[in-house]
């Protein structure tokens, strides 16, 4: 089996969440985010991606990481044979400790071996390190990234008594969903004020329809209706729905439809039931679905 084939099937063991791309990830620019990111990258300014869940933050960073690496390869700065993963993502959670990010000693045979954490690895190979949902990590862990996120660009490794200067292509990117975090879980100012913030929101209807077509393979007419559903449901954001329906869910609905589920049922499963537990709100979303789709 070729490596490409294995990549496609998944289940291949990799270090952390290193991303190797076999083709360009699909991303449809909505505003000037691509230019802004390019500018930030050329100045090596850390970037904060803000926006609701499922609106394309992760896909955007994949797209940028791939595109920027391809450009370097084209310019002859990097060689395609030795190119390393352009992106390492870490899904942050409450128990994420400093060693989980930086690295730790492990036992191997009769000796201890230092294993780099994802952040250290990104710093060394010059990848974009993407800390997803950074607020979920504890605040003391978050402080660790401070020296990396300013002009110093260094990562202290306490356990080894070392300090690494970041690779020239290294960039720190974090994401943050301001919507559902409680008052207790907010980003510290000393953290957030180290980043250039790019705002994300769900794409406008036409663009979202194109995205749904591409991602789910459904026809344009149905995709347009799904995007309309998204737009309408998002109007309920301040009326009991914490978040509107994500583009991701609309794509799921599209995929269910492609596999032969009727549109109304697909939306009930992938949209109405997923976004709320409130029976009445679910009913509202179902009624909107029924209004938009004939069957």
């Amino acid at each position: 089996m070729s490596e490409r084939e294995m990549e496609r099937l998944g289940g291949v063991e990799r270090f952390f969440e290193e991303h190797y791309f076999t083709e360009q990830p699909y991303y449809l620019p909505i505003r000037d985010e691509v230019e802004v990111f390019r500018a930030a990258f050329s100045e090596r300014l850390p970037v904060l991606l803000k926006g609701p869940t499922g609106c394309g933050k992760t896909r955007f960073i994949e797209y940028m990481a791939y595109t920027l690496q391809q450009e370097r390869i084209k310019q002859g700065i990097e060689s395609p044979d030795t190119a390393t993963s352009p992106l390492i993502t870490v899904a942050c959670h409450e128990d994420l400790s400093a060693s989980d990010l930086v690295g730790r000693y492990l036992l191997k045979d009769e000796e201890t071996v230092w294993i780099d954490g994802p952040l250290t690895r990104a710093v060394k190979i010059g990848a974009i390190c993407y800390l997803d949902e950074i607020v979920e990590a504890r605040k003391d862990t978050t402080v660790l990234i401070h020296p990396l996120a300013d002009y110093r660009r260094i990562l202290p490794i306490e356990k080894k008594g070392q300090m690494i200067h970041a690779h020239e292509n290294f960039l720190l990117v974090i994401s943050y969903n301001p919507g559902y975090q409680s008052v207790l879980k907010n980003l510290k100012h000393s953290t957030r004020q180290r980043f250039v913030a790019i705002d994300f929101d769900y794409p406008p209807r036409e663009a979202e329809a194109r995205i749904i077509v591409h991602e789910s393979g459904i026809d344009m007419r149905a995709a347009d209706q799904l995007a309309l559903l998204g737009e309408k449901v998002r109007h309920l954001r301040e009326h009991g729905l914490e978040e509107g329906v994500s583009t991701r869910l609309l794509i799921y609905a599209g995929k269910l439809m492609v596999s032969g589920i009727t549109p109304r049922r697909a939306c009930e499963l992938a949209v109405a039931k997923s976004i709320t537990d409130d029976r009445e709100l679910e009913q509202v979303v179902t009624e909107i679905t029924r209004s938009i789709f004939e069957s």
Partner: peptide, 15 residues
Amino acid sequence: TRLLHLFCTAIAGRT
């Protein structure tokens, strides 16, 4: 009432 209120809010795009 509540159902239609939310339904209309969604459709009209404002409360």
